[in-house]
Simulated assay, not measured.
Amino acid sequence: MNVLIVYAHPEPTSLNGALKDFAMQRLAANGHTVQVSDLYAMGWKPQLDAGDTLEHEAGTPFHPSLDSKRAFAGGWQSPDIAAEQDKLRWADAVVFQFPLWWFSMPAIMKGWVERVYAYGFAYGVGEHSDARWGDRYGEGSMQGKRAMLVVTTGGWDSHYSARGINGPIDDLLFPIQHGVLYYPGFDVLPPFVSYRSSKMDDARFASIRQALGARLDALFDTAPIPYRPQNSGQYEIPALTLRDDIAPGRTGFAAHRE
Rank of each mutant, 00 (worst) to 15 (best):
Q143V: 14
D130F: 09
E114K: 06
F22T: 08
H128A: 15
A8C: 06
M148C: 09
A122Y: 00
P10M: 07
Q25G: 12
P175A: 11
R209K: 15
G124L: 05
H9N: 06
G164I: 01
M1A: 15
G74T: 01
N30F: 08
H178C: 11
Q35M: 12
A239G: 06
I169P: 00
Q25P: 04
E57I: 14
W101D: 03
L15Y: 06
G167P: 00
R243I: 12
D49S: 07
L48M: 11
L100N: 04
D245N: 12
D49A: 09
A122K: 00
I237R: 02
K45H: 11
K20T: 05
L48E: 09
V150C: 02
F103K: 05
Q143C: 12
D201Y: 01
P79K: 11
V150I: 13
Q143T: 15
Q47S: 08
M142R: 01
Y7E: 01
V3Y: 02
L212Y: 07
R209N: 14
V6H: 00
I108V: 12
A58W: 08
P190T: 01
Y123S: 07
W101C: 03
V150Y: 00
W156I: 13
R163N: 15
R204F: 10
A73Y: 05
A41L: 04
L173Y: 02
A214I: 13
A203L: 13
Q230E: 12
F98E: 00
Y160P: 01
R257D: 11
Q143R: 14
F192K: 00
Q77W: 02
G43H: 08
G179K: 00
P61R: 06
V116T: 11
A18P: 05
D201I: 04
G111C: 06
E236N: 10
Q77L: 09
W90C: 03
G126P: 01
L173F: 03
